[in-house]
Amino acid sequence: MKRRLLLLVPLLIFAVLVVFLYRGLSHDPSARDSAKLADRFPAFDLATLDDPDRRLDRSLLEGGDDSEGEVTLVNVWGEWCPVCKKEMPQLQTLADRGVHLVGVDYKDTRDKGNEFLETYGDPFAVSLFDPKGSLGFDLGVYGAPESFIVDGDGVIRYHHTGYITPDDVEQVILPEMAKWR
């Protein structure tokens, strides 16, 4: 009898393997763990897109000395990025729902960036101009669009790689924003 049961061992191993591989099938191969969750937003010193003389640093996201900042959605975009154009209506919806948005114009030229906002609308409270992609690099951005939810203390709480779909607005972004408010 014991011997008989032993014969089931390969079947058992096979079953475990099937479960393991089946899970892999539904796994998005381009998804990555974000390394920046629970980290402070990286330091930066960048001009704004509309005004080259106005420079901002990360105190923008951390509020004043004694006041708590707002929960912010930081969206990394670029005029060269076709998906970013498709994402703009969703960002506009978020802005209309009272979400505080900061844009990062990533690896772009100032003219093209400004033109983009004129064409597709400007949902951002302010857009940072990051022509060399230095802030993007420190954020671990490897393609646009990417979005980060930053809490009132300037800590990264959520990282969305890729396109925010219309469904994501209600199902992912707004609940995440509410979580950190």
Binding site: S34, A35, F137
Partner: peptide, 8 residues
């Protein structure tokens, strides 16, 4: 690199 892009 790991700090920015993770273990990947």
């Amino acid at each position: 690199m790991v700090e920015r892009f993770g273990d990947y």
